[in-house]
Simulated scan of single mutants.
Amino acid sequence: MNALPDSSIASLVDVQSQADPRQVAIQQVGVRGVRHPVRVAADAGAAQETVARWTLTVALPAEKKATHMSRFMELLAAHRHEAMKPARLCAMAESMLDLLQAGAGDITVDFPYFIDKAAPMTGARSLMDYQVGWEAHARQGRRTDFSLRVVVPVTSLCPCSKAISRYGAHNQRSQVTVRLDYAAAPALDLDRLIGDIEACGSSQLWGLLKRADEKFVTEQAYENPKFVEDLVRDVAIGLRRLSGVTAFEVAVENFESIHNHSAYAVVRGGPQA
């Protein structure tokens, strides 16, 4: 297909920049579900290559008909090779406001994050994956807010089952979902945060375990029973100590091994006074 000459491009009608007579403001409009590579630098180590799902939106004034959808993709392409940190994502959201001439905008990026872990007894190495989400909320004339969400799987063993049984106790995999809100982009050590959350379970998980490791994990969980209430409270206590956090939420779901339903608990709060 032949390219249009510059004079033809200049004469094309820009419909989306026209006025809209309905006078209804739109709080968020943009692109969602965009799969795009990203280099995540979430701790002191090297940046990690992964594939993320992106949502980029801006606020649209009542008098404006539409936003420029292509500019969101241009923004992603421009940041393709940068190591993405919380501060970089916030700066990207701020530049999005200028690019689309918007008063407010939000960027959400969700990605699998991998940690290289050594098994507890044999030291066998394997990768564990965790689902992570970052959000940047930019407003003209204000500091950009940042939020983090991370999903951490652990093992929990039932204290009641252990207490009433002659031998054994039922245990299950639990999912700990943590959300942290910051007034500004934090200096984030994601590996340490995940490790602190894992330490609150009856046992943490590994991708690869040999027999000696499996024995250790089974016995460790048995000696460290946790109700869903214990687990959510222990995680919440640790989150209260984090610097820069304005609000947090921790939700724990135990996928029960002896019921066809889950046990569930949520704690919301802010930093410890």
Rank of each mutant, 00 (worst) to 15 (best):
V109H: 04
T55C: 14
K210I: 09
M84T: 14
K64P: 00
D189P: 10
A247Y: 07
L12K: 11
R142H: 14
P120C: 05
V266A: 07
E63H: 14
Q23N: 15
A52I: 01
S17Q: 15
A184N: 07
A87Y: 00
R241N: 09
P225C: 08
Q28N: 13
A118I: 02
N171T: 03
K226L: 03
S147H: 09
A91F: 02
S11F: 11
G133D: 00
V40W: 01
E223D: 14
A91H: 09
Q27S: 14
V217W: 03
S126R: 06
S243A: 15
S126A: 15
Y182H: 14
V250C: 12
A102W: 02
H261D: 07
L208Y: 13
G141S: 06
G141Q: 07
K85Q: 15
T177C: 11
D14S: 11
L89C: 08
Q140F: 02
Y222W: 13
D234H: 13
Y222K: 03
A265L: 05
E214D: 13
S147K: 12
A251Q: 15
E49C: 07
Q48P: 08
A62Y: 05
V24P: 00
W134P: 02
D189V: 11
V250T: 13
K210S: 09
S7K: 09
L12Q: 13
G103I: 00
S174Q: 01
M96P: 03
P61F: 02
A102K: 01
R39S: 08
F227Y: 15
K226C: 07
A19H: 13
A10E: 14
A104K: 12
S202V: 09
L89I: 04
P5Q: 03
D145N: 12
G238V: 03
D106H: 05
W134H: 07
A251M: 09
T218S: 15
A10Y: 08
A247G: 11
A247S: 12
M92I: 14
V51S: 10
A185R: 07
K215W: 03
L56S: 03
I26A: 06
G207W: 10
G33H: 02
R233G: 06
V154R: 00
I258T: 06
G238Q: 11
R173M: 06
L231D: 07
R241Q: 15
E49M: 13
R233M: 07
D98L: 12
R143D: 15
A236W: 06
R142D: 15
L148P: 10
E49V: 08
A273H: 12
L60D: 06
L60R: 13
E82I: 10
L180R: 03
F255S: 05
G195Y: 00
I9R: 14
R233H: 12
A163C: 07
P112S: 10
A78E: 15
A3N: 10
R53Q: 14
A41I: 00
K210P: 11
R35G: 02
A185K: 06
